[in-house]
Each structure stands twice: as structure tokens, then as C-alpha cells.
């Protein structure tokens, strides 16, 4: 009973903190946020959606290092329709997302044949393959030089984009959180742990992995179309292998085990280089240093740091007691 109320109390504090942060983010433009930093934050919002969609895919045990490819499919579809057919971005964006989801479901079918690190390899080459296809159709996609002056969603001011992307991120995160904490997420996690046990309780594990990839594509595509109509330029580099790897790094460094992980990882790894942009050429060193620090010192990732510190400060006595109890327990038989 006591732990129940403690849990509820902690949950209320978390919800309050999230409301404060989101409220602050919504208030920032009124508080004189610089245009430059607003630009950075819009990027952060978009990449948080992608990093969390990657984590969603990871729930079913599928680690991808080619996820930017799905962003690319959505972004290019929407951009090409808007630019060459002159349709409104408000119409082409949902179409881009829809196309991506369909492609996602279709490619997921053969992908279910492979698991674990083999899936990761497949995702890598799928990502490279999409880029190569982009080259073949360079008449439409612009190939290396890319596609420029994509129609905008709003005029040349940043504030509406800021609110649009922030709202998009909040909605996407809410849906993803709900997915994870419903039976859908439970089922995906079950599939990730043991596909044979999962199928023995009636879960069609192949279908669940397809579904998971399709849903993950949905969110990646949302971020992709938002990207296309905000930055209004897409090149070969935009959704390259490096992009996919970066998203993977945001997720892992933030802490793939926690919902807040990709959020923390994306925010820290995108904002710190901006703050240090005077040291431009040394930024990769700082970035790499963050990765190494997290790898060696934070097993739960950046988002796990508060809990880790709390453990360190508050519970050394209890940890010691538990350790000695365990020792006794092990000796007993």
C-alpha cells in the first residue's frame, strides 16, 4: 500500500514536470527566443519524433540503422507532389505519410525472415538502397544536388513552424507512449524477448513485427514530411546512412530502455554542438566524448542519469545491506 502511494506521488510529480516543460516550450517564443535558437529547437522536435519511432521499432526487438530511409520516402513523396504538381503541402503531407506506411508494411513482410543483428544489417542495406534508388530517379528527386524550393507550409517566419512542430512532437509522443503502455506494447516486448514463447500463447509474431515496423514508419514519415516543408531542401545527404546512424545514436545515448531516452539523447546531442558552435571543427570531439562518457559511465543512458544519481546519493546504505543479504542467501544451501 505504501509503495503504491509513493508510486502515484512520483507519477504526479513527473506529470507536473512534463506539463511545466511543455508549457515553457510553448511560451518560449513569447519570452524572446532568438530566431537562431528557435531554428535549432524545431530541428530537435523533428528528430525527437524520429528517435522515438526508432525506439518504438526496438520494442519488438528490431534495431534499425536505416530508419532515415522511411523519413526519406515520406519527405520526397510530399516534396515532389507539392513542387511538381503544385498541390498544397497540407494535402501532400498526409499522402507522403500514407505512402511511407504502405511501403513500410510491404518491406516488413520479407524483413520478418531475419532477426537480431541480421535485421540490423537488412535495415542498413535497405537505407542505402533507398538512396541509390533516389539516384536512379534523379529527374524527379534531383539526385545528389537534391530537390530545392519545396513549397512552404507557412510564410518565411519561424514562429508558426515552431508551434506546428512542437504540437506535432507532443501528439506523436503521447500516441507512442500510449502504444507502449497498452497491450500492443506489451505484445511487442513479449515478441522481442522470445518469439517461440510468444507464438505459443497465440501471438502471430511475424505479423506483430510487421505491424511494429509499419507503425514506426508512420511516425518517421511524419517527421520526414515536416522536415521537407520546413527546411524546403532535400539532398542525398539529408537522409543518408549518417543520418540513420545519428538517430540510432540519439536513441542509444539517451537510453533505449526508457521512453525519455531518445528525447534526452536528441536534445543533448543536438543542442550542445549549437551552444559550442564557436569551436566548430572540434565539435565532433565533444560529441564523441559525450558518447564515450555515456557508454562507460551511464548504463541506462542520459535519461537514466537522475535515477542513477539518486541511487548513488540516497541508497548506499540500503545497497550495502542488500548485498550482504544476498551473500548470506547464496551461502545458505
Amino acid at each position: 500500500m505504501h509503495t503504491e502511494s509513493l508510486k502515484r506521488q512520483r507519477r504526479n510529480i513527473t506529470i507536473a514536470a512534463i506539463c511545466v516543460v511543455v508549457g515553457l516550450l510553448f511560451a518560449l517564443p513569447q519570452l524572446g527566443l532568438s530566431v537562431y535558437f528557435m531554428h535549432t529547437l524545431i530541428g530537435v522536435f523533428i528528430w525527437i519524433i524520429v528517435a522515438n519511432s526508432l525506439r518504438l521499432l526496438g520494442l519488438s526487438g528490431q534495431g534499425s540503422i536505416g530508419h532515415a530511409a522511411f523519413m526519406a520516402i515520406g519527405a520526397y513523396t510530399s516534396a515532389i507532389l507539392a513542387k511538381f504538381l503544385g498541390w498544397s503541402p497540407w494535402i501532400t503531407m498526409p499522402i507522403g505519410v500514407l505512402v511511407t506506411v504502405v511501403v513500410g508494411f510491404l518491406v516488413a513482410v520479407p524483413f520478418t525472415r531475419v532477426r537480431g543483428i541480421y535485421f540490423t544489417m537488412v535495415s542498413l542495406f535497405f537505407g542505402i538502397g533507398v538512396l541509390a534508388v533516389n539516384q536512379v530517379f534523379n529527374k524527379w528527386t534531383g539526385g545528389y544536388s537534391g530537390i530545392i524550393s519545396i513549397p512552404r507550409l507557412f510564410a518565411y517566419i519561424k514562429t508558426p513552424y515552431y508551434y506546428f512542430c512542437l504540437a506535432l512532437m507532443v501528439i506523436c509522443l503521447l500516441i507512442m507512449y500510449r502504444l507502449e503502455h497498452s497491450r500492443i506494447g506489451l505484445t511487442w516486448k513479449a515478441v522481442a524477448q522470445s518469439y517461440s514463447v510468444a507464438s505459443s500463447i497465440g501471438i502471430n509474431e511475424a505479423w506483430q513485427r510487421i505491424l511494429c515496423l509499419g507503425v514506426s514508419c508512420f511516425f518517421a514519415a511524419i517527421a520526414g514530411v515536416a522536415y521537407a516543408h520546413y527546411y524546403v531542401i532535400l539532398t542525398q545527404e539529408t537522409f543518408s546512412f549518417n543520418t540513420s546512424i545519428n538517430v540510432f545514436v540519439y536513441m542509444t545515448v539517451g537510453g533505449a530502455g526508457l521512453f525519455a531516452g531518445p528525447i534526452a539523447g536528441t536534445a543533448v546531442l543536438l543542442i550542445i554542438p549549437e551552444l559550442l558552435r564557436d569551436l566548430r571543427e572540434y565539435v565532433p570531439f565533444i560529441y564523441a566524448a559525450i558518447l564515450l562518457i555515456v557508454l562507460f559511465l551511464m548504463p541506462q543512458g542520459l535519461a537514466g542519469l537522475p535515477a542513477q544519481l539518486w541511487q548513488l546519493i540516497k541508497r548506499p546504505a540500503r545497497a550495502k545491506r542488500m548485498a550482504s543479504e544476498k551473500e548470506v542467501g547464496e551461502r545458505a544451501p
Binding site: 545514436v249 542509444t252 565532433p284 564523441a288 558518447l291 564515450l292 555515456v294
Partner: peptide
Amino acid sequence: PFQSKPTHMIVMAIALIMILET
């Protein structure tokens, strides 16, 4: 240190690539 953690190993490699290339 990361032999049994493929995801961490990928991040490790990325850090190495960044350091060496930069």
C-alpha cells in the same frame, strides 16, 4: 567492454569514427 551489447558497440564505433576522422 561491449562484446555482448551490439547496440552499445555500434555507438562505440561511431565515437571512434568521429574521433579518427575529425
